[in-house]
Every structure is written in C-alpha cells, then in structure tokens.
Design a protein around this nucleic acid. Structure first.
Lengths: 340, 340
DNA sequence: TTGTACGCGTTATCAC
DNA sequence: GTGATAACGCGTACAA
C-alpha cells in the first residue's frame, strides 16, 4: 500500500521509516547496495516501497553535477527526418539511463539561441544539435563549460564538436549515377535555400560538380517551398524547355520531394516519364504510383551515433580527443519514378 | 567578452564581480529587478554579461520546488499524430517559459511505468500522457503528489485527470454519413486491436452502433498491422465476397490507413471503386491518386489544450476543480477515394 | 557496516 | 535598498 502524501517523500523520511540513516538509503539507491547488510537492504526496500520513494534528480544532479539529461535542439520537429533521428537518440539515451529534453526551434535562430541557453541552465550532460543559424559563439560557450556537443550535419568549422550525418557527396553521386544509368540526361535540382545549413550546401555543390563531371545538363532551383506556385512554374518551365534527353528532378530532402510530387501531379506529368528521385525515405514514397525512388538515410543509426559520440567525449575528459566526423552512407531504393 | 571558465558561473561569482550580495543577484534574475537601485542593476547586468551567467535551474528547482519542466509520455514517437500533438504541446510550453521532457515508450507498458517514475523524479510540474497500458496506480501516485495530469484520449476512469482529444463518436458518425452519402453500403472497419486504448475502443463501438443504426453492413478487422498478409487476406476476402452494394474501408487511424493503402495497391483494387476513408490527415493522402479521404484531427489545438489544462489545474490548487474533458471535432476532407 | 556533517547553487526570511 | 543566513534533498568524505 502506498501512503498518500501530497508532498514528495524525501530520503530522510525513508531513513526514519527504515530506522536507518540517510547515508544508507542514499547508498541503496546509488548502486552501492552490496555494501549494506541484507537486513538493512530489505528494511530500506520495504520502507521505500511503502512510501513510494524516488530519489529527487534535481537534488542529486545539483550535488553530483550530473543531471542525467541530454538535450536535443531540433530545427523542425515536423520534419520526418528529424523525428526519425530523434527516435534513435531517444533509444540510445534510454539504454544509458539518460532522459531527453527536446526543443523545437521552428527554424528560427533567435529561438535556437534561447533554447540553447535554457538547456544549459538545466545542466545537461550533452547536446545534440540540428539547427539552421550560426551559433558559433553560443556553442563555444557550451564547449567551454565542458558540455559535449554533437552537430547533426551542420559542420560549423569553429566549434570543437562531433559531426554526425550523411555522406552527402556520395549520396548525390549515387543519385546522379542512378539517373544517368536510367537514361536521364537533363536534371533539375530542387532544394530549399542552402543558407548556412551545411548539408544543403554540400549537396548542392556536389550536384553541380557531379553534373559537370558526367556531362549532364543540370539546373538548380533553391527557393523556399512555402509558395507552391514558384516551384510549379520552375518545374513547368523545365519540362517545357526543348531538350535532347529525358528529364529528371533530384530533390534535396523529404520536403522537396513532397513539394515536387505535388507540383508534378498538378502539372499532370506522369512519374517516370519525368524522373524523380529524392533524399530521405518516407512512408508514402512506395505508395505514390509507380513509387518514388529515394535515397534512404540510416536515421536511427545517426541518432544512436550522436549519443555515442556524446558519451565517448564525456568519458574521455573532454579536451583530449580531437573532434571527429561520422558519416553514414545513403541507401538507394529504386522505384518506378526513375524507370521510363 | 565572455570569460573562459570550464565550470559554470555561479551566482556567487557574479555577486563578487558586481560587488553585490548573492541576494541582490538572485533578485535581479527572478523578476524583482525593480527593487534594486539602478546602479546596482547595471553593475549586476554587466557582471553577468561578462561572466556569461545563467541561473542554474536545477538549484532553483530544488529550492523553489518548481522545475519549469513539463513531461510528455508518447506511446509511439514515430506516429505522425503523436508528433503533431507534440508540436502543439511544445509551442504552448515555450510560450509559458516551460521546457519539455519527452519520453517515447514504444507501446510498452513496462517502459511507460519506468518513464513515468523517471519523469516524476525530475519534479515535473505537469504531465501529458499518451499511453497504451493501464497505469491507474502509477498515475494515482502522481496525482497524490500534486502533479497535474492530462490524458490524451485515454480515459482512465479512476484517475482524476483532464482528458483531451477527439470526439470519437462524432468522427465515426461523420465518416459513416459520408460513406452512406457516397453510396457505400458494405463496410470493413480496420483498426489495431483496441486493447485498453480507449479511443480505439470508442471508435470501434461507435462504428458498430452506427452501422446498425444506418442499416449498413459492417465488419471489423482488429489485428496488429505488423503482418501485412493478415490484413491483405482480410481485405481480399472482403472484396471477393458477393455483395449488393459498393464496398468501403474505414481506417481507425493513420497507421491503419497506410496499411490499407498498401494492401489495396497490392491487391490491385483502384481507390474509389473500393472506398477508403481514414482518421488522421497525413501529408501523402492527397498524393496517392485519386486522393484519400480523411478525417483530420486538430492536432496542434489538442496539444495546446493539453498544456492549458495542465496550467489551469496547477493554478487552481489542484484538488478543487473537478476533472474535465475537452473534445475536438474532426474535419472531413473528401477526396477521390470515396468517389465512385 | 553504519552514521555525521558539510556543500552543491539557489531562493526565502529576516535583519539592517 | 541591501545583505547575512538558513533551508531545499541529496551525495560523500570522514569518523566510528
């Protein structure tokens, strides 16, 4: 039977109930159970059970300097990619007894700064960052405070932090090779504006290099996806233009794929006739007939790797290890949208 | 210029730097700025700026008993519905200066219990719960500790907590009316097993009532969606069976819609010929030709309402107000899948 | 094996 | 208007 207290039970109450001292109870709950006599152990266990006791993490975090909290800054929580990575992060955290604080910043640098500072105030032990702004200075502060950082795909040169993400160059190469294989010679690259977001930048430049290297024709359209008409027009123009070779669209991420698919449907162009390939595998890509070819990112692995990096760095005493980069390979999933 | 300390700056250091007392600095940062002399204010501001000071929320949480933390228990973080609600929760939290701790439980009651206890140990000020298990006892403990609870669509009768969610009965009615309007007379209801999850239960029973009331023919298939073949067979049998009236599928949630769409495609049945309507609006429903009719849930509003309930209850001193239910209406989005 | 005493960084109380 | 001091709940030397 649990006793009904409207206040949380403290270690002191458990100690009294078990006729033991604070210390013993504390030991019991911090993995030093073996050092206690069996009798004492059962008494404490019983007392804690009766009172429904749970150590206060605020207090223990304050005392030991370890909050057992990991922070995650997400640029856009509604992006399936972010969620998929978050799933991996959450799993890895749980396996290590860590909890996760999630902050969504809606692609707003001001909010990113605010949330960063907030997370720091909770004494988080590590931070996984997926942000759009240039946060060098704020991040530098965190690094100086000894908080391990992992950047998801945002290679900010200045800061000493791990970087985990896709091997963008090879992913684009994979896409271009596939398109060329399938006979598409004139390409339109669709992306949101790269801005400071380095993966967008990396993918874009590799596209440009890769097109040249393969003697393909390539154009790019890097506009916000918020206004469908802009995209629609770009695609219509691309299709209408006289050309000597089949045409295809290459979408830089899931959002772009979604927008492009909408635009193609509105335009009435059948998939495959106009080729379509996108980075990021989504639930529905196999459903939109005849299926959309994608480059899947190993999202869960990316999330787990992020936490692993965090922990490794924390145990390594921070400054000693140089920061590293972990790159994962995209997986091509060929479907009807690149089959003529 | 920020000074490089590898430890976090404390209030004491700021006090020394500003030639003031801890108390004054504390006042400055806890909204009692006005009580300080202008001179003192600028001194503290400058010192804090120089040192990059931020109050330690662990410590203040310990002292004041307010962690400024809201917890959210999510049954399945990869379910778009959960994410959409979470978006609303996060926004509402941010507007109130609260932070969000997210726990994914992967539909596992054991993990739900574990996370619940973990969240409590962080002295969270409120909890939004979307769970599958029967957690009555654990939740009761939290209520007794004075933690406000909001259940997303899981009406656990015993516990004194707010319930926020969809008006399931009317949503099902809406679906049935729509299907009947469009001339579908034989229906197959697809759902994951209802188990203890009350929205599934509510939708299922309403379907059965509603079918009877309208003189329609209705069957139900409530199996896990993990094995596509089971669903596939059920649908094939349903379609193959001789009938007097057009047939349609009604999917209880987004997962079911996804599975049903896959199965129909595998079966080669064109949408609309066999009707399809699903609860939960998803990105891709408009893309799968000729578009899938859905009942959209106002997810962001649900998330925000959850946090509002939490805060209202906290300010009301907890026990006084009776627990309430907030129900939102689904919105019908008709598309080609219910047009013959 | 067990208990005592102190400090983590903050806020609240009470003096000045 | 300002400052000293005692908690908050816990972990951990150190002593017993």
């Amino acid at each position: 039977m649990t006793i009904t207290t409207h206040q949380r039970t403290t270690i002191l109450e458990v100690a009294r109930e078990a006729k033991a001292s604070k210390t013993s109870v504390s030991r019991y709950f911090s993995g030093e159970r073996e050092r206690l006599s069996p009798c004492m152990q059962t008494r404490i266990a019983a007392a804690a059970q009766r009172l429904g006791y749970r150590p206060n993490r605020m207090a223990s975090g304050l005392k030991r300097g370890r909050s057992k909290l990991i922070g995650m800054l997400v640029a856009d929580i509604r992006n399936p990619f972010s969620i998929a990575v978050m799933y991996g992060v959450e799993q890895a955290c749980r396996e290590r007894g860590l909890s996760l604080m999630v902050c969504n910043t809606d692609n707003d640098p001001a909010q990113e700064r605010e949330h960063l500072s907030l997370l720091a105030s909770y004494q988080i032990e590590g931070l996984v960052i997926n942000a759009v702004g240039s946060l060098d200075q704020e991040l530098q502060t965190l690094v100086q405070q000894g908080i391990p950082l992992v950047l998801l795909e945002r290679e900010l040169s200045e800061v000493e932090a791990e970087v985990v993400g896709l091997d963008n160059a090879r992913a684009i190469d994979l896409a271009l090779d596939h398109l060329q294989d399938r006979g598409y010679g004139e390409l339109l690259y669709l992306s949101e504006p790269p801005g400071l977001a380095s993966p967008r930048q990396a993918r874009l430049t590799r596209f440009q290099q890769g097109v040249a290297a393969r003697n393909l024709t390539g154009e790019t359209h890097c506009q916000p996806l918020s206004e469908p008409e802009t995209l629609q027009n770009a695609i219509s123009n691309f299709i209408a233009r006289p050309g000597t070779s089949p045409k295809a669209l290459l979408c830089a991420n899931g959002n772009a794929t979604l927008a492009a698919t909408r635009a193609l449907q509105a335009h009435g162009a059948p998939l495959g006739d106009i080729g379509l390939i996108g980075i990021d595998e989504l639930d529905w890509c196999e459903l939109v007939s005849p299926g959309i070819t994608t480059l899947a990112q190993p999202t869960e692995a990316i999330g787990r790797a992020a936490v692993e990096c965090l922990m490794r760095r924390r145990e390594a005493g921070d400054r000693t290890t140089p920061s590293r980069q972990v790159h994962f390979q995209a997986i091509l999933i060929p479907r009807g949208s690149t089959r003529r």
